[in-house]
Write a protein that binds this DNA or RNA. Structure first.
Lengths: 123, 123
DNA sequence: CGAACCTTGACACACTTGTGTTAGGGTTTG
DNA sequence: CAAACCCTAACACAAGTGTGTCAAGGTTCG
């Protein structure tokens, strides 16, 4: 079997086995399974678990917060709705006509990923 | 006094007075106060309360979720850290040699994140 | 085979979120 | 002035979050 089992993963990441199962449940780090159903943590998952730990510790956030951020990533409709609401707040920057900058914010990443030279057109 | 008092605002927005205080506490809609400390809701706040209600109802999110989204807006360090973590998703498509824009993204703001994140390099 | 480890499920517990309600005490207004 | 309304504080409570622990039952490996 390649990959660490849950207790081994727990030891190298600082999470408890119990919490590793919980982290999986909330959808943040989902290791693959062996034939017989054992969780197998690869290097990628281990790294993710460590950085997740840092993220939670350094800024004071909960797993549910990160889970929500992930949900924003996946559910575009939710992301737009949330952005829109947050955007309509009194202390808005107001230089840029809202629609443009909003779409820019939302599609920034896709654009940069798909067109590696996109920086030149923004700068 | 211009502006609706809490009970009036409650009636026109669908929130209970209790919840209006709670929504204020979590920092989502903070009305100004009269001399004597009465909450005064103007048209902007009322509209915000109504759209907030819709947002919560249509997508299944909680006030705390929206509060977190707001926090992401205000705390750039947190936003970057969260983005970075979400970005290092398991389904990394190819071995793209850490594009320049990523470093740009990270250096754009303060370097409070003192950890040498060895992302995606665990082979 | 048997010790050691894994799995799911469940009981427990403290804390947070979301709401209602009630109490003691000012403010506004008919 | 007194009814009606506002304020904060606080008790209550269900549901969710974050963790530990223990139980019954497969899996792995020396």
């Amino acid at each position: 079997m390649d990959g660490l089992t849950i207790n081994e993963a727990a030891e190298t990441t600082g999470w408890s086995p119990r919490m590793l199962r919980y982290v999986e449940r909330v959808g943040l780090v989902e290791p693959r399974r062996s034939e017989s159903g054992y969780r197998l943590y690869g290097p990628a998952e281990l790294q993710r678990l460590r950085t997740l730990r840092e993220l939670l510790a350094q800024h004071d956030v909960g797993l549910s917060d990160v889970a929500f951020a992930l949900r924003l990533r996946r559910d575009e409709a939710l992301a737009s709705a949330t952005e829109d609401w947050l955007e309509a707040r009194p202390e808005r920057p107001e230089h840029v006509p809202v629609p443009d900058w909003l779409r820019w914010e939302q599609e920034k990443h896709q654009r940069l990923l798909t067109t590696p030279n996109a920086l030149t057109e923004v700068a």
